[in-house]
Design a protein around this nucleic acid. Structure first.
Lengths: 340, 340
DNA sequence: GTCGATTATGCAATCGATTGCAAGAGCTAT
DNA sequence: ATAGCTCTTGCAATCGATTGCATAATCGAC
């Protein structure tokens, strides 16, 4: 491949445009802001000149002066699982939809992954002044950290569950109800020994487990601790829980997984171990990620309406940026019966 | 839900810390930068004070002064398909991996989706001074726009194909070779009437079509224009091409799709039309997105090593930021035979 | 021709950091 | 005691915009 020499253009500043137009930077600034203080013909002349020169306002300087960044920070805390990549399909789908909504409102998206949250991580993100608001995807195990800033920092909205003693504004589905739907469905299929897969460090998972226990209790079935196995959220350790369960010798005829990724991993592991889905073991997941509908067999799961969720999060965030008070939103989960 | 009053903390600035420590901002700035000019005990005292007060340097001010942002801009141009959401799995997986790599190097990620590229869109992104470098995912139909800036703006790396007259640094797979692999595989299966699905506005697609034509030519099979149908990249219009093909009455016994998403859509549409995969029609996709391996039947496809691709892109970008010249990287594609 | 109202434009402060240069403090050596 | 060091520390300029206030220019009315 040919090697090319790159000759960087000198960056234009407002003063350059001002000089070319024979006016001051004040006038250029106002003209570009379409300020009626500047007579229309001059305004148009300056705008045309700036465009012709390819001049663009330096956002860093503008932001400093205006104390705004026109940027929303989308944050993914990965507390409970240090190795988890941003590559998890659920997070990615959420990021995509949030980015769409934020872009639609003319804001930029700053994407931050917090690998191993150290005390004060959220404060540092907020205080660094890089964004006008923060969206956190998932509570992970950082409930306390979120509470800590919620009382002094308004423009914050979190995707997650309705955990007790929560000071921050949240959007999410009712995890407990969703889990009940899932387990009731399995019970209706005649399943009685239902295993639960999920790492209970995250509040969402805890709530799903709570719904699982409630549904069992309502059906008069005693919960069996051996049927709960921890499982991580990501690609490989997701198999941990199901392997543990398989090797423990406990018998079970159904699995309720705290996420679709865990469910798909479990199906794969069980298939390798000679257990058929759904003939031997019924499976219900949680999230309804895109993969769920394309997988084989198509995964029965609890649907979270990500599209609406993203819309609500962004809407609430902008309301809070404007100083309004907002009410958390919890959407009704929906059972999607496919073939597992 | 209880309504909470949020009392915003006054934002601390360096001057506040300076006053509390009884020194000037110069000293605080140097102390926080661990500058040996400041005697160690004082340095430690100031750092401790700043931490105790939860002080964080204002990145906007710092960036303005230093002319750096510590941020990489990941850009997704959606030229050839205005409705395409950022939600496309291929883009999302790429974004996730790039974000991982960028975060690893201590940089922030600014995610920009360009809905309908207007002339100068890339210049505006660059000149706005929001990032130290730009990664573009996919050439879309913006080859000219990329070329236009490449000669004057060094820190730019593009994911895409090796199109002629390319001035910008690129990472990608050899699309032509990949397409040949796919078509040769179909030929080996005994298929002769192979359709191509993909919207040829994007250079990548054009290259894949070229490989398709080359493979057919090498096998002595005349290319039939009726077997090429346009298809978009996203959720619904992806079906356009296959529907067009099905309703045109042309017979075909195989499909080579320019992306996995198109392939999966095609399989679904054909199933609805009573065509079985792979019995009646063999299908090969391109990308090997995560869904491809979970789908049913598992999709035979051309694998792009996204993990390595993301690593290479970020590595090259940082080299270019340091002023080095770099060579484009094209990775060998790999045929992944599954069941279609 | 002068005054007041109106319009057009620019000066200079400001946002919150970083850093070259200089000055003051403290010390040593003669 | 003083010249000559080194070591500390701070002043003030700078990055590139925005905007309150002031001034200059223009105009119409009498």
């Amino acid at each position: 491949m040919k090697s090319r020499t790159v000759t960087p253009k000198p960056r234009l500043k407002m003063a350059d445009i001002a000089k070319m137009a024979g006016v001051s930077t004040s006038t250029v600034s106002r003209a570009l802001a379409d300020n009626p203080l500047i007579p229309l013909p001059l305004r148009e002349r300056i705008v045309a000149l700036a465009r012709a020169q390819g001049y663009v306002v330096n956002q860093q300087a503008r932001g400093l002066r205006l104390q705004r960044t026109n940027t929303i920070n989308v944050v993914i805390p990965l507390g409970h699982d240090k190795d988890q990549l941003i590559s998890d399909p659920f997070f990615l789908e959420m990021v995509g939809r949030l980015a769409d909504q934020i872009t639609l409102r003319g804001y930029e998206v700053l994407l931050t992954k917090v690998m191993s949250p150290t005390p004060g991580w959220l404060e540092r993100i907020i205080q660094s002044n890089r964004s006008d608001g923060v969206l956190v995807i998932g509570q992970s195990d950082q409930h306390q950290a979120l509470n800590a800033v919620a009382d002094s920092y308004a423009p914050l909205v979190v995707w997650g569950g309705d955990v007790p003693d929560r000071h921050y504004c949240t959007v999410g589905v009712d995890s407990v109800a969703g889990a009940r739907l899932a387990v009731e469905h399995l019970l209706k299929l005649g399943r009685r020994r239902i295993a639960f897969l999920g790492l209970p460090e995250a509040p969402e998972v805890l709530l799903r487990r709570q719904g699982y226990l409630e549904a069992l209790a309502a059906a008069g079935i005693p919960a069996e601790p051996a049927l709960t196995a921890p499982a991580h959220f990501n690609a490989e350790p997701e198999l941990e829980g199901i392997h543990h369960l398989l090797s423990s010798g406990v018998t079970f005829d159904a699995v309720f997984a705290a996420s679709d990724v865990i469910a798909l991993g479990a199906i794969r592991a069980m298939t390798e171990a000679g257990l058929r889905t759904p003939e031997d073991v019924s499976v219900v997941g949680f999230d309804d990620v895109t993969v769920a509908q394309y997988s084989w067999p198509p995964l029965t799961t609890i649907r979270q309406d990500l599209d609406r969720g993203a819309r609500e999060m962004v809407e609430l965030l902008f309301q809070r940026i404007e100083g309004k008070t907002t009410t958390s939103v919890f959407m009704a989960p929906e059972l999607v019966v496919r073939q597992t």
